[in-house]
């Protein structure tokens, strides 16, 4: 009989936004296909540290557990990623789990990503339809546009691209790659394009696209493989053209 394999997990605990932080280590029973969410659930079921000290279950965000709701982003061994797809067997131990650092902390691993949703409002990330009553079919969209737009519309607002961006920090209000990519998506839609200039203007405001410094971390960190750097480049091109033409032609 093989001895039971253990998983050592170290979690950054913080009772609230204003409380001090500390690390707690846990020793969990290994099982096949174990992921970080399972580790956190194990701790909730038996909230005792490796040293035998009683503690509280860990607060964290999660929902779909299949990498499509965007909830469970956190720092796992220092990297921003989704906890549900972070397999224990592929991680170096002790597995260090910490909350994302670029968003206000709620408790333990839970953070507040409202900033992203506010940014979506700021750039009018929607199609301006007249109403939900029956107005017939939508505009024709070529398969080519669909193939470009579909990957962009896969953005789950997890915030990983903001977390890894050196330009996103307490000094500025950079909206981040995800939002810029959404602007590209809505600007390429025939109806969405009707708000194109407003969206671009919003992105030329404070914290706008100019804050991007091309470190290109976003595209590596995106769990959905969205071509973020391509989006930023395209929106950048549209933005300066609009600024130049607006100045030249009024």
């Amino acid at each position: 009989m093989a001895e039971t394999k253990q998983v050592i997990v170290s979690v950054k605990r913080q009772a609230g936004p204003k409380e001090g932080a500390r690390w707690e280590e846990f020793s969990l029973r290994w099982r096949p296909s174990m992921n970080v969410i399972i580790c956190l659930r194990d701790i909730a079921e038996n909230p005792v540290t490796r040293g035998g000290q009683k503690t509280t279950p860990i607060s964290y965000d999660s929902n779909c557990l299949e990498e499509i709701c965007g909830s469970c982003a956190m720092l796992i061994n220092g990297r921003a990623r989704m906890a549900c797809s972070a397999l224990v067997d592929q991680l170096e131990q002790p597995i260090r789990i910490a909350p994302m650092s670029k968003f206000p902390l709620v408790r333990d691993l839970a953070v507040d990503r409202q900033f992203m949703f506010e940014s979506l409002k700021r750039v009018k990330a929607w199609i301006p339809i007249d109403g939900t009553y029956n107005l017939g079919e939508g505009p024709r969209v070529s398969p080519e546009i669909q193939e470009k737009g579909y990957p962009l519309s896969n953005c789950i607002s997890c915030g990983n691209c903001l977390e890894v961006c050196p330009q996103v920090n307490e000094h500025n209000q950079f909206v981040g790659a995800a939002i810029i990519s959404q602007v590209r998506l809505f600007n390429m839609h025939p109806t969405g394009a009707m708000n194109k200039s407003e969206r671009l203007a919003a992105l030329m405001g404070p914290g706008g696209i100019q804050e991007c410094a091309n470190a290109q971390n976003c595209v590596h960190a995106c769990p959905k493989g969205i071509p973020l750097t391509e989006s930023i480049a395209e929106v950048n091109r549209d933005a300066w053209k609009q600024a130049l033409l607006g100045w030249l032609a009024g």
């Binding site: 220092g78 990297r79 890894v164 050196p166 330009q167 920090n169 000094h171 500025n172 804050e211 410094a213 091309n214 470190a215 290109q216 971390n217 590596h220 960190a221």
Partner: peptide
Amino acid sequence: YIWLRGKSNVSAYPWVGNWLY
């Protein structure tokens, strides 16, 4: 001024673009 507004994280994310940054 731009430099001061950024916050390098190349030790956590040692990707080429980040190094260049």
